[in-house]
């Protein structure tokens, strides 16, 4: 009644102000960043590797390369471990164990990224330097740290996708003489495919947007990486490292870097949404 209406109106106002806050941030970033892209030309901005703010050169290609390299690396590492974990917890362990472990995995998502970065710098970077050579601060180090950081995201969504697969598939497959493992690889992963792809894309979105841990372990050199052991600078690192002292065109170029990042992450999220909206395949009468 009347009280409900008032509460409804208040909640609507709160929701709208949160959304409009996001909208304002978006508008602000684009207003600050887009003009310099237009002035330099998209080609100059996106396809040049020269980033020398003091000379007025703003090419972000090496950072796009750096972001892509660590994101793909992180996804490769994250997918292997997350999918393995999700399969074990949903298919090969007693229900009590997965119920106990899933919250623990989700807890991993709550550890601050600076902690991941710190552990990476103290243990992983020297390890890579001594065993594989190079500076240690590298694509490889960043990929491993990010791979671990996105593990909770991918695992948790992949578990949901696997649990949504109709148990009648399992029965049908076992009844034909298949082993549990054959059933997983031949039917269950196929049935959960769209959800798993969405999980991986969302994980990649997290990886490409991560900043602190990457700054600590990636080395931040301004060059297109040629090997996994080369140091790289990502789009996020670039903004975080330089925003403190940037002004004028330099500051605008950093906003333009942010616009680039924003567009990439939005596209990833749209793709993930598209995949997860595809209903898990189910038998029509099932």
């Amino acid at each position: 009644m009347k009280q409900d209406k008032i509460i409804g109106a208040i909640l609507l106002l709160v929701a709208l102000s949160a959304i409009s806050g996001l909208g304002l941030i978006t508008v602000f970033i684009f207003r600050e960043g887009v003009p310099i892209i237009l002035r330099l030309g998209a080609r100059q901005f996106f396809l040049s590797t020269d980033w020398e703010p003091s000379l007025g050169k703003f090419g972000i290609l090496s950072m796009i390369g750096g972001s892509l390299a660590v994101t793909v690396g992180a996804a490769a590492i994250g997918v292997v471990f997350s999918l393995g974990l999700a399969i074990v917890l949903t298919q090969f362990s007693p229900p009590g164990l997965s119920a106990a472990l899933k919250p623990l995995i989700e807890l991993l998502a709550g550890i601050p990224s600076v902690v991941y970065g710190f552990v990476g710098v103290v243990t992983l970077v020297p390890l890579i330097r001594h065993t594989l050579g190079g500076p240690g601060l590298s694509v490889l180090a960043a990929s491993i740290v990010l791979g671990i950081m996105i593990l909770p995201t991918i695992t948790s969504i992949a578990i949901d996708a696997l649990q949504a697969v109709s148990p009648t598939y399992l029965e049908g497959s076992i009844a034909l003489g298949a082993t549990r493992w054959q059933t997983v690889t031949m039917v269950i992963l196929r049935a959960a495919r769209s959800g798993i792809v969405a999980a991986v894309i969302l994980g990649m979105g997290r990886a490409i947007g991560e900043t602190m841990a990457v700054i600590m372990v990636a080395g931040n050199a301004l060059e297109v990486p040629h090997s996994l052991l080369d140091p790289v600078r990502t789009l996020t690192s670039n903004i975080a490292l330089e925003m403190g002292y940037a002004s004028g065109a330099h500051r605008q170029a950093l906003f333009a870097t942010g616009v680039t990042l924003f567009v990439i992450i939005t596209l990833l999220n749209i793709a993930a949404l598209g995949f997860s909206r595809r209903r898990p395949a189910r038998s029509r009468v099932g």
């Binding site: 009648t168 598939y169 029965e171 009844a175 196929r190 049935a191 038998s283 099932g286």
Partner: peptide
């Protein structure tokens, strides 16, 4: 089975 359960 009771309900047809073809694989996807």
């Amino acid at each position: 089975f009771q309900r047809p359960n073809p694989f996807p």
